[in-house]
């Protein structure tokens, strides 16, 4: 066996023995580097005659080719193994919770309010707003609620001290008056906002609650328009299979007036009605006091309790939970 053959045996064995890329590179240096045995054999070329040099040259080339093939193969194998090991070491349990802060949730009442508003906006209503500490003139007088009217006492008003006639608004209806005294028909607005009553806090009462008021005033507005608007609203919010029912009622600022129920299908085929809002045709006195000619224009108005709808739809049993700001409640919706 020639020196080169023996060298090749050893080199190939060393390549096979190399267990990582660093060791493999060391093998390359050892067997083919400047001070390697191979370099020593190569250096003898100088002293050979042409024929022997040619022969040795062929042997050297063969050695180099064999070495390179084995080296490349081993390098590939080791590279793949290293990558596989890295990938294995980088394994993540993606069922762990992501380490980031999730966004907060809008309050349930906000969600329900925005959903209701978007239904009315889609019909062509704009959104109007007004103050919560409100002039009695807007909250009562311009809505046909005279100072001595029994309805005024029934409203359990909270009064603001130090002003002649300022109250915490008992409904969002005063914004009707604000809009009608400043804009000409056609008027179509919905008014979301907070309202107040001197009610002690319990599971079904809150001194603070919120409403969405609706108002449409134009020539020739009818009670059928009111019914159609509320039916479309009830179906958008509660489901296409719902119906509504109007029952005669009394509000000082509408005539005719109605309580409006929406149908529901309970468990076991139980069918019933739930009261969700009050509505009616705007009382001609209100139109007139707000500077709109009741002979020419008519209109309808309605008021929806946002808490009531939210509680009905989401099964909230205690109204206090809406105002407690317990994160377990807030994050639920």
């Amino acid at each position: 066996m020639s020196t080169l053959d023996e060298l090749r045996e050893r080199a190939l064995a060393a390549i096979a023995d190399a267990h990582d890329l660093d060791a493999l590179d060391q093998v390359r240096v050892t067997f083919t580097g400047k001070r390697s045995e191979f370099a020593g054999v190569q250096a003898t070329m100088r002293d050979l005659d042409a024929e022997d040099r040619k022969a040795l040259g062929q042997q050297l080339n063969a050695f180099r080719a064999a070495f390179q093939d084995a080296f490349d193969a081993r390098q590939r194998a080791l590279g793949e193994a290293a990558l596989a090991a890295r990938l294995e070491s980088e394994r993540l349990d993606l069922t762990l919770p992501p380490r980031r802060l999730p966004p907060g949730r809008p309050h349930l009442l906000t969600q329900v309010e925005e959903e209701m508003l978007s239904v009315f906006i889609g019909m062509g209503f704009r959104v109007a707003e007004g103050p919560e500490a409100e002039a009695g003139a807007y909250n009562f007088d311009l809505l046909n609620i005279e100072p001595d009217h029994p309805a005024r006492q029934e409203m359990d008003t909270i009064y603001v001290d130090g002003y002649e006639d300022v109250v915490l608004r008992t409904h969002t209806s005063p914004v009707q008056a604000r809009v009608m005294t400043t804009q000409a028909p056609p008027i179509a607005v919905v008014v979301p906002g907070r309202t107040y009553r001197a009610d002690a806090v319990d599971a079904t009462h809150s001194p603070v609650f919120s409403q969405i008021e609706g108002l449409y005033v134009d020539e020739g507005v009818t009670m059928a328009d009111l019914r159609g608007t509320l039916l479309a609203f009830a179906r958008a919010l509660f489901g296409a299979d719902r119906d509504i029912r109007l029952r005669p009622s009394f509000f000082p600022f509408t005539e005719p007036s109605a309580e409006v129920d929406v149908s529901f299908h309970g468990p076991g085929g139980h069918h019933g009605w739930l009261e969700i809002l009050g509505a009616g045709m705007v009382d001609p006195n209100v139109l007139e006091m707000c500077g709109i000619d009741p002979e020419r224009y008519s209109g309808f108005a309605f008021g929806i309790g946002i808490e009531r709808v939210a509680m009905l739809r989401h099964g909230v049993r205690d109204i206090r939970e809406l105002f407690e700001a317990d994160v377990r409640f807030l994050a639920r919706f």
Binding site: G122, G124, P186, D218, D225, T229
Partner: peptide, 22 residues
């Protein structure tokens, strides 16, 4: 309306002459 029955009032979705929106 009351004695005739509110249930006998039809429903009609008015097409409002205003554009809605925020």
């Amino acid at each position: 309306a009351r004695l005739h029955g509110y249930d006998n009032i039809p429903d009609h979705l008015p097409s409002l002459p205003t554009t809605g929106g925020l």
